[in-house]
Design a protein around this nucleic acid. Structure first.
Lengths: 207, 207
DNA sequence: CCAATTATACCCCTAACATGGTATTGGGTT
DNA sequence: AACCCAATACCATGTTAGGGGTATAATTGG
C-alpha cells in the first residue's frame, strides 16, 4: 500500500489525477493540495505520505522551492516532479533539491502509476527526454586538452583533495619545487592560471 | 528504421537477442559481435550502426573500455549498456564514458526494444535501480553547516567561477578588504582554510 | 642510438591568499 | 533605547601560490 499526496494547482489535472489514483488498488491518495503551502497545512493531521507527486508551476512557492520544506517535515518521503517544464535548469535544480523522479506532464496516468510503484520499491524513473538530459550531464565534454602525464594527473587529484603544494609534495614523495614544476605544466596544458580553476575543471569533468 | 549492433560474449544471450531483434519490424540487427575488438573488425565493412547494445563483462576490453573506441569510430552512434552489474562505480564510469542508456540484464526484451526506440528518438532510459543511483548522485548531501548569509553565498559563487579576490570585489561592487572579511567568515562557517576547499565543497554539493 | 619527453630539483621575484586585529554603519529585534 | 548582526572597510603580518628561469637523470619513441 502506497500513501500518495498530490500537489497541483490546475483543477482539471488535479481532480483527474485524484480520481484515477483513488480508483487504484494499493494506492491511498490521502492528501490533495493546490500548493506547497496548502500541502504543508493539510499534512498536519494526516498520515505521512510515502510519495508526493508535485507540479512545479504553483501559486506561491514553486514545486522545486517546496522540496526542501517537504523533506524537512517528511524526510522519508519521496518526491516526484510532474511538470510541463523539461529544461535542464529545472531538472537539475529539482534533482539537487532531492526529487527522486521527474515526469513530463504528458505522461499517461498508467505510466505515472508505474513510476510510483518503481519509486516505492527504491528505484527511480524519469521521462525519456529528462533521462537524456541527466545522462548527457555525465557524458565526456571533449575540450581537447593537451594530454596530461601520469604524475600531472596525480598532482591534480591531490589538488582536488584540497591539499596545499607542501602536502602534495609530501603525499607524492617529491619536493615542493617539483610539485611547482608539474603545476606550471598543468596550467599551460589546461590554459588556466590558478589552483581554483584546475579544481573547477576537474570537478566539472572537463579534464 | 534503426540499425542495431550487439556486443555480447554469452552465446545463449547473444543468439536469443539477435533472434528477437531480427524478428522486429524497423530494426536492422546488422552486426553481432562477441567482443569490442570483434565489433571494431566487423564494423569495417558494415553500415554505421545507430545504436549499440553492449555487455560489460567481455573477453579482452570491457564494454566500458570499449565506449571511447567505438565513439571514436562512430561518433554519432548511441551506446546502451546491458549488464548484470549495477554498482555505482560501473554505472557512472559507463555514463562518463558516453553511454546513453544502462539496462540491467534481467530487462525483458520488449523493454529493451522500447529503450532502443526511445534512444533513437533522442531520449534516454535506464532500469529503475540504475536511475535511482543516478538521481541520488544529485541529491543534497546534508552536512549541517552554519547558515551562510546572502553575501557570503555570492562570494562563494564568484569563487566557484574561478575569480580572484580582486575580481570578486569588482563583481560585487565592494572593496577587496570586505571580500576578505566575508571569506574569513565563510572559512569559519565551513571549517576550511583555503579557497580550493570552498570550491570543492561547493561543487560537491556540500554547502 | 639519438632526440624528445618526463620527472626531478633549485633559484628568484611578485602576486594572491590566510589570519589576526579593529571599527563604522544600517536593519531588525527585544 | 539597547542590542545583535550583517555588511562594510582598513591595517599588519606571514604563508601560499604563480611565473620566469636553469639543469640533470631517466625513460620513451623513432
Amino acid at each position: 500500500m502506497v500513501t500518495l499526496a498530490l500537489i497541483e494547482d490546475d483543477e482539471v489535472v488535479r481532480t483527474s489525477l485524484a480520481a484515477f489514483f483513488s480508483r487504484q488498488e494499493g494506492v491511498d491518495c490521502s492528501i490533495v493540495a493546490v500548493s506547497v503551502e496548502d500541502f504543508l497545512v493539510k499534512s498536519d493531521n494526516a498520515v505521512k505520505p510515502d510519495i508526493i507527486l508535485s507540479d512545479i508551476g504553483l501559486p506561491g512557492l514553486t514545486g522545486i522551492e517546496g522540496i526542501p520544506l517537504i523533506k524537512k517535515k517528511f524526510p522519508e518521503t519521496s518526491i516526484i516532479i510532474l511538470s510541463v517544464y523539461a529544461d535542464s535548469d529545472r531538472v537539475f535544480k529539482a534533482l539537487c533539491a532531492g526529487a527522486v523522479g521527474y515526469l513530463q506532464k504528458d505522461t499517461p496516468v498508467e505510466e505515472i502509476l508505474e513510476c510510483i510503484n518503481i519509486i516505492n520499491k527504491g528505484g527511480s524513473a524519469m521521462s525519456p527526454a529528462i533521462a537524456r538530459k541527466v545522462v548527457d550531464y555525465f557524458a565526456p565534454k571533449r575540450t581537447y586538452n593537451e594530454p596530461l602525464t601520469a604524475k600531472e594527473q596525480q598532482v591534480i587529484t591531490a589538488m582536488v583533495d584540497g591539499l596545499s603544494y607542501k602536502m602534495i609534495a609530501s603525499r607524492l614523495g617529491i619536493t615542493l619545487e617539483t610539485v611547482r614544476q608539474h603545476i606550471k605544466n598543468i596550467y599551460r596544458k589546461l590554459h588556466v592560471n590558478s589552483k581554483g580553476e584546475v579544481i573547477i575543471k576537474s570537478l566539472k569533468g572537463e579534464i
